[in-house]
Design a protein around this nucleic acid. Structure first.
Lengths: 351, 351
DNA sequence: CTGAAAGCGCTTACAG
DNA sequence: CTGAAAGCGCTTACAG
């Protein structure tokens, strides 16, 4: 039996202490790199640890010290490349701090998320980085407050009373709208999809305000399907009917990728007869043809920011809630082009 | 501060037991759903837990019971969408088993990986799912064996003596080669990149064997850069010079995406004058134009398989090493097309 | 700088 | 079915 063997073989701190001829307390101090212990003693203890093959038992340490060097990360969807990059950023910082990430997937379901928060708590995580599932109420955050479990919201925000790291969506929308406006476009649509949460609303609101600031109508907020294959088939919404446009800003790069293919299928040449702007800049925009103009939101940097916010919070529980709102950057490539004038028939465009 | 409050507020099993008028042992049995305890007693204890807001302390339980309900997952690269899907599959199964994933990123560096294995061990994980960094030796696995730490290798294999879940790369290569061969292609190249590991070698070897089985030369194994933007610029390797071909099988979809763009830039129409086959089928192949023919390797299913293998291993440490080699499936779309004959000049192709 | 003792919150035999 | 006791491997005051 593996388990029994593991148990039998285990060398404890007491074994190390005996072997080195010191007390258990001294050995413990060596492990935690306390300056209280002399250099020669330290060397002797470390040699014994090496010789006996000692393995530090976090579980025992955590029970006594009440910290686990463990962070919970709750994410609504792993397969979205945006979240994968966010996670990579979080992992980098947490790892560098000598801590470890416990990862769970809420599937954007509030009920599951509740269950997972409890599970994180049972595992004794020192803090949580949460991208709240759509529909999360403030209640959850209050409960965490009662639990005295440090929390950082990332990308989506539910409460102003809790740390938050996210994107300046208003700025991003302004950059996209201004760019299209300068190219002469007036019939600009915003293609949205997915569940409604703060990041969704900030994007829509940012679009409205940016359009109004340019004296343009902002009524063309058009929902497209979630699956990319279905987005392809929704491209006609932007070439005909009441929401026909000359340019579309996309909720994210997945939408842009789908619409790019769909417009191509309709014989509309993006980057010449029609303009498309993505959001996030995580898809392989450089390898798309035409290359996709997109608003970079730097998910990896946001992940790093969120993790640093949490580490700060652990060190300083007393300071007030903080916000980290990252600037966006418009990456201009080929998919956005000057407006070609009103009498131009989109469908004749193919080369 | 926070920590002290958490401590002070904490209600323990003993509190629950007293409140319910039973002993601590009985309360413990209730938690672990033992049939030894009567229904009325159980109900009383559960009511007390609810009323007092009891939180199970995994840390304490693990110290005594020597299991943590925690699994370590070591992955070489999070941002690759292939690994994101793999991870999603693992997480689903581990979560359903009531366990939790500790995720770390080796960055494909053997030294970092060693350090992370030790860290996992200190955290007391019950087992590890490892996609070994390129260059990992058998020594690591032997060491884990000595540690009595159950391990499953995923996607890449270092030892036959340890459980493994992966892809039948030979089959995938055969499917790709046979398809191109049936379309009349004879000058078929294999575009590879990235670090060399078992999955790399199995693909190359699979290509060689499949080509030879068709009586074709298998010398055109061509290395392309790692960055997708640089792959785009490497497309000329397949249109001219000694490795010019009429069809390319790609190491993965990232390579295919880059070459697709690069060939387009060269004026070569993929899916008419040139054939391209991807591998993995994780990129949004349906949204590419032309749609990418690709060999599906089902990373999410492999993640699930690996996690199930590990759960089985935890339950039955005594059984011999097992292998789970998942079949591939060729998804034929538009990027592969019949050979157009020898005197056709690729560069005149553009419509 | 070091040692002896208590305790973190559970689980596990062992009696009853 | 339940209770009293020991112990998992650490850390933490408290003396010296």
């Amino acid at each position: 039996m593996t388990l029994d063997q593991r148990k039998k073989n285990r060398v404890t701190l007491l074994d190390v202490a005996r072997h080195a001829g010191v007390s258990r307390a001294t050995a413990s101090l060596v492990i935690r790199k306390s300056p209280l212990v002399g250099a020669d003693t330290r060397a002797r203890v470390e040699a014994s640890m090496e010789e006996l093959g000692y393995v530090y038992n976090m579980g025992a340490a955590r029970l006594r010290a009440d910290r686990s060097l463990t962070i919970g990360v709750v994410i609504p969807n792993l397969t979205n490349p945006f979240f994968a990059e966010l996670l990579a950023g979080i992992e980098t910082v947490i790892d560098a701090a000598g801590m470890v990430v416990i990862l769970v997937n809420s599937g954007d379901q509030v009920g599951r998320q509740d269950m997972l928060m409890t599970r994180m708590r049972e595992h004794g995580v020192d803090g949580i980085i949460l991208c709240p599932a759509a529909g999360t109420g403030e209640g959850l955050l209050e409960r965490l407050g009662e639990w005295h479990l440090p929390l950082v919201q990332v990308l989506r925000r539910v409460s102003d009373q809790v740390d938050y790291a996210g994107v300046d969506y208003a700025q991003g929308m302004r950059q996209a709208v201004d760019h299209l406006s300068e190219l002469g476009h007036r019939e600009i649509a915003f293609a949205v999809h997915g569940p409604v949460h703060s990041a969704y609303e900030e994007r829509v609101e940012g679009f409205r305000q940016a359009m109004q600031a340019k004296g343009l109508g902002a009524e063309k907020v058009v929902r497209v399907p979630h699956q990319i294959s279905a987005i392809v088939d929704a491209a006609h919404l932007f070439s005909e009917g009441p929401t026909a446009s000359t340019a579309v800003i996309c909720f994210n790069d997945v939408v842009a990728l789908g619409l790019s293919a769909g417009l191509y299928d309709l014989g509309i040449q993006v980057g010449r007869d029609f303009s498309l702007i993505g959001f996030d800049d995580v898809a392989d925009a450089d390898a798309m043809r035409p290359r996709l103009t997109s608003v970079s939101t730097f998910p990896e940097a946001i992940g790093e920011g969120a993790a640093n916010l949490l580490l700060d919070r652990l060190a300083h529980p007393e300071i007030g809630p903080r916000k980290l709102v990252k600037a966006t950057k418009l990456q201009i490539r080929q998919s956005s082009a000057p407006w070609r004038g009103g009498d131009h028939d989109l469908r004749t465009a193919r080369g």
